[in-house]
Simulated assay, not measured.
Amino acid sequence: MGVLALVCVGGLLFDDRVLVGAPIWAKPFKFSVSFVAYGLTLAWMLSLLPGTRARRVGWWSGTVLTVASLAEMVLITTQVVRGQQSHFNRATPFDAALFQAMGMTVVVLWLAALVIAVLLLRARILDRATAWAVRISSFVAIAGAAVGFVMVQPTSEQLAQKDPATVGAHSVGVPDGGPGMPLTGWSTTGGDLRIAHFFGMHALQLIPLVLLVLSALAPRFARLADDRLRLRVVLVASAAYTATFALLAWQALRGRPLLSPDGPTLAAAGAIAAFALAGTALALRAPSPSAPRQELAA
């Protein structure tokens, strides 16, 4: 994926073709960079599995996930070279076959990730904060990936057509390829399911990042060395992150742009922010001197 990302950079520099309102090499570039982060994070999480049996199942699941990811990128890049839309494309039998194959690889990838998440849920990881950071983030990432299954559902306009060239869409309430945000291309005129998809999947990196920051600050702030305090902060951050993911999906499904939230969206966002601030303040309170310093994961 790292090599493919470099190839895509070359495509962005020297290939001026545009597809669905974006440079044609933008999609494989974003996907390959995302898979780099995804693969590195999963490799670290798999290293936390104790026991020979769990490690063996984790190895096979990771291998299946890697092969499915590679197949997905080969199919996407094939369509880029052909100058055709990869996702939702049913314009010709060949395009439809490639899109169906992509759907199958995504299902395999999702199931492999689910197996890894279950393994992490059952694993006895000594540091409780680490245990719950990897458990929660892996399941939120699975939910984020599942948003992709919503995208492939035909829109009302497509259902009204006898044989539509495309089936499914990123955007809600507006056609794909309309005005979008810089870099991401997310719609600025309607809902966009890619936002929740992206935010959910990258819980795999961002929730454990909270723990890494706390651990890095522990030598300077003695209170952060307490594993119970780190666990409380991780749980608050995970709850706020999960709620934000749900809010982004809800906002997109109602056809609301990310940067033009309505009243209900703002109210929900305010509630999440208030919870995060209050929860973090409570989590950072000084622990009882008589409380034990170390706990094992349940």
Rank of each mutant, 00 (worst) to 15 (best):
A237N: 06
R230K: 14
A225K: 15
L126K: 13
T52A: 15
T66L: 11
D16A: 15
Q85N: 12
L212V: 11
G83V: 02
A274L: 09
G180Q: 08
L284E: 07
A129P: 01
G190D: 02
L206D: 01
I207S: 00
T265E: 06
L13P: 00
R90I: 10
F245M: 08
A225G: 15
Q161G: 01
T242C: 15
R230D: 08
P28S: 03
L206P: 03
V9F: 13
M73A: 09
S86W: 00
Y241A: 01
L258P: 12
V115G: 02
L4D: 07
T265R: 04
T63Y: 10
L98C: 14
G185E: 05
R122L: 15
N89Q: 10
W44R: 13
G10W: 12
A165R: 15
S215G: 12
C8S: 08
V150P: 04
V18W: 11
P219T: 02
W25L: 05
L121D: 08
K30F: 07
V167M: 13
F94N: 08
A225T: 08
P208H: 08
D127E: 14
P154G: 10
I195P: 07
W60K: 04
L206T: 14
V107W: 14
H170L: 02
A274R: 03
S288H: 12
L159C: 05
L277A: 14
W59I: 09
A129C: 00
A123H: 04
Q205R: 09
G168W: 09
V152T: 04
A291M: 10
D16C: 05
V33T: 02
G10D: 06
L19H: 01
R90Y: 15
R293H: 14
A267V: 14
V233R: 06
A278K: 10
R56T: 09
A225I: 01
S137K: 12
G51Q: 03
V213K: 06
A143N: 06
M73K: 05
G103F: 06
T166P: 00
A37P: 02
V213Y: 11
W250P: 10
V33Y: 02
V33Q: 00
P164F: 09
R90G: 01
D192T: 01
V152Q: 11
V108K: 12
Q161M: 15
A278N: 11
A117W: 00
P182G: 04
L284P: 10
A160K: 13
R55F: 00
W250I: 05
L126A: 15
A97C: 08
A239R: 03
K27I: 08
Q161R: 15
P93G: 07
L119A: 05
S47G: 08
T265C: 00
L98T: 09
P219A: 07
M181V: 10
Q161S: 13
V134L: 11
V18M: 15
N89R: 06
A145N: 02
V172I: 11
